[in-house]
Amino acid sequence: MDHLLEIRNLSIDLPRGKKLPPIKLVEGIDLDINKKQNFGVVGESGCGKSITCNAIMGLLSYPLKVGKGSSIRFQNSNGKEQEIVGMAPQELCKIRGNEISMIFQEPMTALDPMYTIEQQINEALSFHTNLTKAEMHDASLEMLKKVKIPRAEEILRDYPHHLSGGMLQRVMIAIALINNPRLLIADEPTTALDVTIQAQILDLMNELRESYDTSVIMITHDLGVIAETCEHVAVFYAGQVVEEASVVDIFHHTAHPYTEGLLRSVTSLGNAKKELYTIKGMVPSAGNFSTGCRFADRCDRCMDKCKTECPPLVEIETGHKCRCWLHIDGAVEEA
């Protein structure tokens, strides 16, 4: 396997009892994540970006389930390939926090208020290493310094509510990186933070990337964060990947009308008081996806074919995939 992580035909089901077929929250996701790659996943709320990443961690909350025929293959540090779908819980625990770790959106609620910072870092260490207490203390201290926390020695003894959001997010990053994982999933890590703090955290993540061999999956709704941190981007819409390309291609050779709409509604911001570009209508909710292209009824360039048949995700240029009939040879003429 050349990639660190290979997701094939991933679907996530919301069961509706025995009589009804499950609702597919995401469907047909294929993603490859390379070693040392910064992979961005962008989309609006409810597009399935977060649950896709929860599935990678084996952390789907009840009653969600990974659908039949899905595969998530991960290459661990020994070079061995492992299938995450259907893995035993004990095995998953060995991977989580050690090979794959995660940063959450709300630093204020992602740490347990009952325990000191040191206890929470130790927790991550104690399940994956055999360090003594003193060694763990030293490792935690060093890690906090790496994420640029001042007065690290004091902070270790503090409880989460003593620290600000920015500091807590640094602690979260420290916990996530302490076992030197191969993959870090960052689920909207700066959404809850103020702009200046967001800038600090993004800078920190960019710097840490130099010293760690970790691949990062950055989940966000903010194209600015993508522009700052990612090399390769997948755009999610209504439970599907609609476009996937290098970050420069996404911004400069945009192929899918949805991506284009998103970019335009952001970039037209700031042109003082002019009418903003908008994508009409609203995001369809899971279970109400059309059988054709899921973006068809909001698309300016919708054709008849779009309403009836869902376009496949095809490579339109090397490394640039798009799910749109406009970019599939023959489809436009046919219509």
Partner: peptide
């Protein structure tokens, strides 16, 4: 203002660090 994320991956942005 310098902390606003850039809108284009090719944009060079100098950031004043707080």
């Amino acid at each position: 203002l310098s902390a606003i994320p850039k809108r284009d991956p090719l944009e060079e942005k100098k950031r004043i660090r707080l």
